[in-house]
Structure formats: C-alpha cells, structure tokens
C-alpha cells in the first residue's frame, strides 16, 4: 500500500522543493511509527512521514483555519469532507483560497476506532496488509451517509486502487501546476464510479434519519433531551467543527444565552449550534468523533443540513460562490417552494 502514499509524497515533495507552497499539512506517522498525528511540514525530510490510511482523527480544514498562516501558501492533503470544510471556511473569509493547494484523496470512509493500519475501498477493506470484505459497521457513522467519495473540489484528486496503484485526476489549472513538479509519472484517471456509494449513502441516510423521523414528536423530543442530558459542555463539538470559525462565541458564559457552570448545559446550547451551522454542515463527523459522551450530534447536524438544503436547493461545501441559504436573500425565493409560515 505504500505506493499510493509514495505518489502523494512525491507530489508534495516536489511542490515544497519548487517553492510552489511554503508548508504541507497532512496526517503522518507520530511517536512510534504506528500512531498518527496531524503534521504541519516545512522540511522536505518530514514528507516521508505522510500516510494515506483511512484514519483521519481530526478535520485538517479546521486545523488549517485555526493554526495556519493565511498568507502562506499551503498544500493540504484532503478528503472530500476536508475540502468541503475548506470551501465553507473560505466563504467565511478565514482562509484565502488562492493560497490553498488541495491534494485530494478519494475516500470511501474512515474508521473511527483504529485497529491496525486500515485502507477502505468502495467494496473492500485492507487491515494490516490483509484484504477483506468491507465491514460497514467499522466505518465512522458520518462516512456511511457520505455521498461524496471523490474530492472534486480539490485541485487534484488521487484514487487509491486496492492493488496500491494511485491514479491522479486534475481538477483545476492550479492542479496542473502542482503535478508539473512531480517526479513520478501521473496519468489522468477515468472518472470513478460513485453509484454504489450514492446507494450506500441513501441507505444509511434513510436509516439514520428515518429512525428519528419515524418517532412521534414527543418521543423525538424525549430522545434528544436524554442525549443532551449527558452533555458536559466541553465545547469539543464546536472546536472540532470546520464551520464554527467565530473568534468570540455566543455559547460562552455570560453572553446572555448559556449560563456558566451548569452541567448539563441547557438544551439551547445544542439548538444554538444548530441554528449557526446546521445549514452548512458538510458531514465531516468531527463533532461526534470529539463528543466524550457519544451524543449523535453529527446525525443531527447532517439531518438539518439535508432538510434545509432541500428547501433552498443548496448543498454546502461544493461551490465557493454559493452562499449559505440564511445569509443571503432572494426576493422571489420560497414564494415558489411552498413553505408554510403558519
């Protein structure tokens, strides 16, 4: 499997060497070689540490927005949810898209709990070098609902084949320049067949959202209240979310909404987060991965974003020029969609 990582490393090494970028952001090997850490790399030597395994413990989009220098040129190894997160962050002017060079990796899901070195493919998975049928239960819940295996928003996208080959597709002009410096030959890949993944996504969305929708309203309310009862207000969901980019946050104590020192916090804590990010959720699943109490928050946000998206015909994270639906106006809209305001 090393071959794919080698191709990605080669592209990034070239970009760093040719000064196309100042810094590379990716996941790589940490303390012992088997553990994984996010890395901000400026030294070509560290490029060797970069991995392309299906274990991505945090949103690189968020890390770039939070710690990156927006005036520096950065290459970021992204999956489609990272790329979509960066698109949303760019809409909120927290990164300069012209400074970002996105090296996309096709992604059919990542594992939440790490069991060895894992690669996920459309219909199989490789664990510590051994190929086996895909166990959907091992995937992070948000990945099962994901319809976007191919990071078309990235400048180039790399497809990892089960045999270890890496096929690269160029999506943008910038992408061409990025590949120009690579020393290994890269060929244009035929488009990936994503029908099976769309089917999987539809199936899991039906299950995850349907379970909630099928409840009576009172039952649904009780369900969420019992989930929120476990909340310890660590702010982990907010801090992991690529959409939450405010420097000052209205959820902090003494801003008139959420009282400090009360645990669990009022249900309003979650409702306010929903009103702020729900419409723009890119289903990266980082909120749920960060939740110490296993509250299925990603399901909640994703569900709202899907529902709101259906009214406004909007899908977050795909197009940098289309603004979040509640932060723009259109005189004619909604008059034709038949929303009932009563």
């Amino acid at each position: 499997m090393a071959k794919c990582a080698e191709v990605v490393q080669d592209i990034l090494r070239g970009m760093l060497r040719e000064r196309l970028v100042d810094e590379v952001v990716a996941f790589g090997r940490g303390l012992t070689g088997s553990d994984i850490l996010p890395l901000f790399i400026t030294d070509e030597q560290d490029i060797d540490r970069i991995v392309t395994t299906s274990y991505c413990p945090s949103s690189l989009a968020k890390l770039v927005a939070r710690y990156g220098d927006r005036n520096k040129k950065m290459a970021i190894v992204v999956r489609s949810c990272d790329a979509r997160g960066l698109v949303e962050i760019a809409k909120r002017r927290q990164v300069k898209p012209e400074n970002l060079y996105l090296v996309g990796i096709e992604c059919y899901g990542v594992v939440r709990e790490k069991r060895g070195e894992v690669y996920i493919f459309a219909d199989k998975m490789e664990v510590d070098g051994e190929m086996m049928p895909l166990d959907e239960a091992a995937l992070s819940p948000n990945c099962r609902r994901c319809e976007y295996p191919v990071p078309t928003m990235a400048d180039i996208s790399c497809r990892i084949e089960p045999e270890g080959d890496c096929l690269v597709t160029v999506n943008t002009e910038k992408g061409k320049a990025m590949l120009a410096t690579a020393s290994v030959p890269v060929q244009d890949a035929p488009p990936s067949d994503v029908a099976a993944i769309k089917e999987r996504a539809a199936r899991w969305q039906e299950k995850d959202f349907g379970d909630i929708k099928r409840m009576e309203p009172g039952e649904r309310l009780d369900y969420w209240l019992s989930q929120f009862d476990r909340c310890i207000k660590c702010y982990g969901c907010r801090d992991a979310c690529p959409i939450c980019v405010c420097k000052e946050c209205c959820l902090e104590p003494d801003r008139g909404l959420i009282k400090g020192g009360e645990y669990p916090p009022e249900t309003l804590f979650h409702a306010v987060r929903l009103t702020h990010v729900g419409e723009s959720c890119v289903n990266c699943g980082q909120c749920e991965a960060a939740c110490p109490m296993e509250i299925p928050v990603s399901k909640l946000y994703h569900m709202l974003s899907k529902e709101v998206g259906s009214i406004f015909n909007y899908e977050p994270g795909l197009d940098i020029d289309s603004l979040p639906p509640v932060s723009m106006v259109d005189e004619e809209d909604l008059l034709k969609t038949g929303v009932d305001f009563g």
Binding site: P217, G218, L221, V308, V326, L334, F341
Partner: peptide, 17 residues
Amino acid sequence: RRRVAMLKKLMEILGLE
C-alpha cells in the same frame, strides 16, 4: 423568511411542533 423556514425544520427535527 429564510430563517423561519430553517427554524421550522430545526424544530421538527428536535421534536417541537
């Protein structure tokens, strides 16, 4: 108008009429 449309969906998901 847009916010109310969003809020109504949010309320529905949470289980409020």
